[in-house]
Every structure is written in C-alpha cells, then in structure tokens.
Simulated scan of single mutants.
Amino acid sequence: MMTIIKEISYLETFLVRHPVLREGKPIESCHFDGDDLETTHHFGLYSNQKLMGIISLFQKNNPLFLGQKQYQIRGMAVLQQQQKTGFGKSLILYSEAFCMGQNVDLIWFNARVEAVGFYEKMGYQKIGKTFDIPDVGEHILMFKKNENE
C-alpha cells in the first residue's frame, strides 16, 4: 500500500473535513478563518491515490504560551473506515517535522475530548479545563514544545 503526504489546497480538505468533522452540517461549515492565508498549510495523506486524512497548520499564537513562533493544528481528521490505522499518527509526525523546519517554538490545538488519549501518546500535554465549542463538542487545549529549544 503506497502512502504519501503532500501539501493540498484548503478546498481539498473539505473531502475529509465534511464527513468526519462537520457531518450533517452545510459544506460552508468546513471553511475555517485563515484557511486561505499564505502562512497556513494544509496536508493530505493519500493511500493508493485516495485522500484518507488531512491536517491544517495555522501560524497563530495562543496568548497562554510564551513561544514566539507557534502553529495551531486544526481540522485533523482521518476518514472513519481508515481510523486506527496509523494515518493520524503519520499526519501529526509530518506536521511536527514541517514545524521543526519552520523553527516553531510550540504547537497547540483544541482537541476533541475523545481524541485526548491519542494526542497524549504523541507527547502532547493538556492545559486548563474542558470547554464546549458550540455545535462541535467538548474540547481541551493541548500543546507540545519544540524539544530543540
């Protein structure tokens, strides 16, 4: 099975964002603020030339952290039938390597509560209390610092 990860357009992310993250909602709900900025990067994981998973990196600082250069992960998703196959881990590792190349101090994101265990295994830490994102669900802030700092 041939698997590759490459940069894609934000519109291409909708093929996975919609069924996984915004199921039953209008396609417009897949558009995130900043999707089309030059500093935003979208990556797609392809298996046998089919898009199976996506992740987006937004250059955005969270005031809770002191790191000068931060990226926020958003819209991390793998198609339902491909979950628990290692694709999500591959997308995270690829994104971390990309961020290292950009001299990023810290990666942060709002994790869905049911995904916290997955991210903890990847070395991310929780901070603060869970909070609700309307129409999406319970989340908690997670982060990882660049070990080379």
Rank of each mutant, 00 (worst) to 15 (best):
L106I: 09
H41K: 10
H42T: 00
R74P: 01
G88E: 01
R22V: 00
D135G: 07
G117I: 13
S95W: 06
Y124H: 08
V78M: 07
L45S: 05
L21I: 00
L91P: 10
S47T: 12
L79H: 03
L93K: 15
G67T: 01
I127G: 08
H41N: 08
R112F: 12
G24Y: 01
D132I: 06
N48F: 14
I73N: 04
Y46N: 03
F109V: 03
E96C: 11
L91R: 14
K84S: 08
G53F: 14
H41Q: 08
Q82G: 07
E23K: 12
F118H: 11
G44V: 09
E38M: 01
H41F: 12
L79R: 09
K50M: 15
H41P: 05
Q49A: 15
Q59M: 06
K50W: 14
K60W: 03
G117L: 13
D33K: 10
I92L: 14
L51W: 10
I55Y: 10
Q80S: 10
V113P: 01
I127F: 11
I55E: 05
I133S: 00
C99Q: 00
G123T: 09
L93W: 09
F43H: 02
Y124P: 05
G44N: 07
K126V: 11
N62V: 01
V116E: 15
A111T: 01
G75E: 02
G137I: 06
G67W: 08
F87T: 07
G137S: 09
M100Y: 13
G101L: 05
T39K: 02
F109H: 02
D135L: 12
K50A: 15
A111R: 03
M52E: 11
I140N: 04
K84Y: 06
A115M: 10
K84E: 05
G75W: 04
S29H: 08
L141Q: 06
L37E: 04
P63N: 08
Q59A: 06
K25Y: 07
F58V: 01
P134M: 00
K69M: 10
S56N: 01
L106P: 03
E28C: 12
E120V: 13
S47W: 11
L79T: 05
I27Y: 10
L91I: 09
D105W: 04
A111K: 04
I133C: 05
G101T: 05
G34Y: 02
Q70L: 02
L141K: 06
E23A: 11
L51T: 08
K126R: 13
Q72E: 09
F58N: 00
Y94H: 15
K50P: 13
G88Q: 06
D36L: 00
I73P: 02
Q82L: 14
G123Y: 07
E138N: 07
I127T: 12
Q72K: 08
D105I: 03
G88D: 02
I140P: 00
K121L: 02
L79A: 04
A97G: 14
V116Y: 13
M76T: 06
S90F: 10
F43K: 04
